[in-house]
Design a protein around this nucleic acid. Sequence first.
DNA 1: ACCACTAAATGAATGCCGTTCATTTAGAAT
DNA 2: ATTCTAAATGAACGGCATTCATTTAGTGGT
Lengths: 229, 229
Amino acid sequence: MPASTSAPADPHRHDAKPRRRAGRPAAAVLDQDGITAAALQLIGKSGYEGFTMAALARTLNVAPSALYNHVSSKRDVLVLVQDHLTSFVDVTAFDAEPWDRAVRSWAWSYRDVFSKHTPLIPVIAVLPVTDAPKTLAMYEAVSAGFRRAGFPQERIISAIVALESFIFGSAYDVTAPADIFDSGSMAESTPNFTAAVASLAGQGHENQADVAFELGLEALVSGFGALRG
Amino acid sequence: MPASTSAPADPHRHDAKPRRRAGRPAAAVLDQDGITAAALQLIGKSGYEGFTMAALARTLNVAPSALYNHVSSKRDVLVLVQDHLTSFVDVTAFDAEPWDRAVRSWAWSYRDVFSKHTPLIPVIAVLPVTDAPKTLAMYEAVSAGFRRAGFPQERIISAIVALESFIFGSAYDVTAPADIFDSGSMAESTPNFTAAVASLAGQGHENQADVAFELGLEALVSGFGALRG
DNA sequence: ACCACTAAATGAATGCCGTTCATTTAGAAT
DNA sequence: ATTCTAAATGAACGGCATTCATTTAGTGGT
């Protein structure tokens, strides 16, 4: 059976390294952690266009088919990368700061991590948490922060999902070209839009995506803050 | 030169059909509108996995290479489909209802259209409006609605972008499996998250994605409503 | 020391994909 | 009739993820 993405089922294990089973050869060149690290490095160097199973195998000095002893598909590799990246999302503020500041800190950090990895968003958005333990750990930290802030239990998940949706959508914005709203030759037929774009540009903000993110985030924080008991 | 996605540059043209130029044969089997319609139908029948240039050509009784006389890439076809779909987004409420109701109506409609077409989201999110005239028309209608509602010019685009980001992210949620938050064997180590999930499930809502969307949308509407002068 | 077992690596092959290109076809203009 | 040209063809290309029969090399049992 090929390796699966999900974490080991046994929750009582204490070792970081899995205990060697009988009959198992020791000199494995490859494992999921190594594949994940190599994949992340390759993506950093070549982007997602250059990220192929063949290229990944090459960086590991291995035949492409060898990867399939540890991973069941390319999508599986993306899941591993996604989960690893999620551990870079900063949730520490939920232990140290008031709820609204913690949410802001978490949301900015979350958006910044995945704005460099937007091809993963379609993967994350529909991925069962069981397949991504570090992602699950993030949810736990955030849920705990919401509960301590006095949120009603039944609203916590919905609020997190709504924030996450906003974060994912905003991650795409970061990658959009600066002139995405230039209406060009059609400006005459879209006076309201064109004027609004010009007016925003006149403000001279470096990063329009950041302005929109801040605006939306403040609305969500203040709207959700009112739910606390 | 292959056909480009952008609309004809001449703004003085009045005919719907382009005027026939000298030396141009008349019996074209294919054009961008026909390709768009066939693509939409094929996607509806086979999904985005089954949507290939070869399959598209087959439904049009044409060789795959013939498509490239009218379209420069598969991505180009996706752009045409995206723009066509955007004309199904309902913006009429901006002419008939108060701002907050209009935003709700537009946002739900926008999310519903693209929740069935999430593979287009990465395309839309970074697409210059010049390449998508119907999308530009939507922005014009929405911008006009915001202006009439008393929004300060410099905030209109940022507010729309924030709403759109939330809408795109939420479109993914609709497609997520129902048990995406089932923590399974890891429930013990994530008590806060697991309790929150159970509490939401206990509410017995049919569609968790709708609940989260409603919650986030209300927060954005009330947050942005406060900006009006 | 030998054997039996097995996880892991190999390399060739498969099928699908988007795209290119030289060539052909058939209306339109002169 | 001749010329021009957009559009269609069909064969090809390179790249891709993935499969599979086979080989390799540690390990535990005897």
